[in-house]
Design a protein around this nucleic acid. Structure first.
Lengths: 336, 336
DNA sequence: GCGATCGGGTGGAACGTTCCCACCCGACCG
DNA sequence: CGGTCGGGTGGGAACGTTCCACCCGATCGC
């Protein structure tokens, strides 16, 4: 060991074990052949010294990091949290490490781009991006350098692979369910495209389908979750709609809170539906009616798609579209 | 640029800009002085080449990574998710990067230890650990090499710094609330210490306080969240308790689901309380009565405590204990 | 019995940065 | 007017691994 306080290196271990540093490297990297005798000498010397391998130096030298970068918009939400966990699980299964960058509610576009660039600087071999905010062109630039897979939101750019759910199918199916239960006039919350691509498209699908079915739609456009009270109050004043379809579970919860504040019962007086099907709102104790996205499947497939590109063969870009399932809860009641 | 397909390095940039590699390094690391002219020459050359800095090589050479490692037990839960996001936010504020490792529901102790060791191998300068599973002695060993802060669970070891909430205060206060509302017989779900240190101690505090107040306690020990139906059924048969206190919001939700399955209304027939105060159950739409832990504060302070140790001065180990606040919802009703 | 093969081993050159030291030169000081 | 200072610059030695070329002796097929 060196005199100073720095942690021991393979050279220190080699000296103590009486072998060359190459042997220590072989023991730890698992490449090349080592006799049982040498291996145990190295291992005991390492244990005595308290040696731990320097993964950075290793990948610096081998120019392989065995690491995937995951960016999620906000890990504290169940949607992205679930995606993050499945991805890191799957990556671990196939022998990759994961470096995670997460934003938060207050994160803006520049922050997200910076976080993404950080990941690239850390020499990740591939990038998994989960965010509705980043624009396609921003991603294309980065995808030129590092293989990139977008998960959880549609992406049609040629050079970017993506795995996502069919928002139109989901929105229409959920609208079917609401109409089936007898609702003839429905308020649909429709965020703008600048707020979220996924939410606006699923909400548009809901409205379109309802109209097709002859249901009257009260559209509320560009509504933000913080001020959902106003639209809800107006809905109650005009008194027409028997149901509110929100573009996400989170929005549905906000609507339910606003209704409750006015003494309106869900679903006896007004029905409410969400979208995403995230925990814990799917619990029977709450019973939110929603459209469940197969997030585990999305996460798993996104990792696999990225790996396929990394391991060579895979075509430049492929787009996998998954379907979800109806989560029929208690917040949408039958009307007569 | 080199002939092969490898990404450009500072040497390539230097050649193109007509300066030495030292200059390029200075421009990107911000250390040392560079004339405005040289800086712009370097920057344009870099842009033309599509150069991105290799963060690994940089920290390899400087033996400083500017990176903190965060381990959370399961990022998909709101509790750990919140902790993770606040920590990464705070770290970003003070100029550190974060490498995250997350387990999942199926993660066992060995997996957690491996994940922790991975983080250390990646040369993080400090470790933030959020998990009720890891034993104190496992952590002490790792803390010897890398400064380590435990967040969200009590830790009394000498060499480990910790930031956590006072479980006894919280448990007792919540018990006070339930007793105040007139409940004279209460079922308390008490997990074993091997399941979770925090949950078992808060549950014990609840039971103790209720007994002090002359309330009859029906203890249910070592209950697991999957089979909460049995205890709930027995409670209904014996018919004594007017309230169930669960050791977490998640457990409370499971109890509510089990009650509903038997046609029992909450809170009209039986009251239920949780613990943690996590989103989205704190929404007025749901109104779960709980004890809210100041997770943002825990996360922020944990990062700051770690930084204090890194920047030298801080004492070997300090333990910060925070208090929570009552989240009075609607799931615990007044009884007469 | 002899070249080919193979398991086990060595030493040194990468990998892409940072950091230290040496150097130059113009400005300022006594 | 010589000496000192400091901004700007270049060269080379780290940093801790992996990987490659090479070496040695034992076994193998013929």
């Amino acid at each position: 060991m060196r005199g100073d306080g720095r942690p021991p290196t393979i050279i220190d271990v080699a000296a103590r074990a009486g072998v060359s540093k190459s042997m220590v490297s072989r023991v730890y990297s698992g490449r090349g052949s080592v006799s049982a005798d040498t291996r145990s000498k190295v291992l005991t010397a390492a244990a005595e010294l308290g040696y731990v391998r320097n993964a950075m130096a290793a990948s610096m030298s081998s120019t392989r990091t065995n690491t995937l970068g995951v960016f999620v918009r906000d890990a504290s939400t169940p949607f992205y949290g679930r995606l993050l966990v499945t991805m890191s699980e799957r990556a671990a299964e196939v022998g990759y490490r994961v470096v995670v960058a997460t934003g938060s509610g207050t994160f803006d576009l520049d922050d997200e781009l910076r976080a993404l660039d950080h990941l690239v600087e850390m020499q990740v071999e591939g990038l998994l991006v989960c965010s509705g905010l980043l624009s396609s062109s921003d991603l294309v630039i980065r995808a030129a350098r590092t293989p990139l897979v977008v998960a959880g939101r549609p992406e049609t750019a040629e050079t970017v692979t993506s795995v996502y759910c069919d928002e139109v199918h989901g929105g229409r199916s959920l609208a079917d369910h609401v109409a089936d239960l007898g609702h003839r006039r429905v308020t649909v919350l429709q965020p703008g495209e600048h707020q979220s691509l996924t939410m606006s498209s699923r909400a548009r699908a809901m409205a379109d389908r309802l109209l097709e079915l002859g249901v009257t739609v009260d559209p509320v456009r560009d509504v933000r979750i913080e001020d959902v009270q106003g639209p809800v109050d107006r809905l109650l004043e005009s008194g027409g709609s028997t149901a509110v379809m929100a573009p996400s579970d989170r929005d549905a919860l906000a609507v339910m809170a606003a209704l409750r504040r006015r003494g309106v019962r869900v679903p006896e007086d007004v029905s409410v539906s969400g979208y995403d099907g995230v925990a814990p709102l799917d619990s029977p104790a709450i019973g939110l009616t929603s459209w469940a996205q197969p997030l585990r499947e999305v996460g798993r497939r996104a990792v696999d798609a990225l790996l396929a590109r990394l391991d060579g063969g895979a075509p430049a870009a492929q787009h996998q579209v998954l379907l979800g399932t109806l989560q029929a809860g208690r917040t949408v009641a039958r009307v007569h």
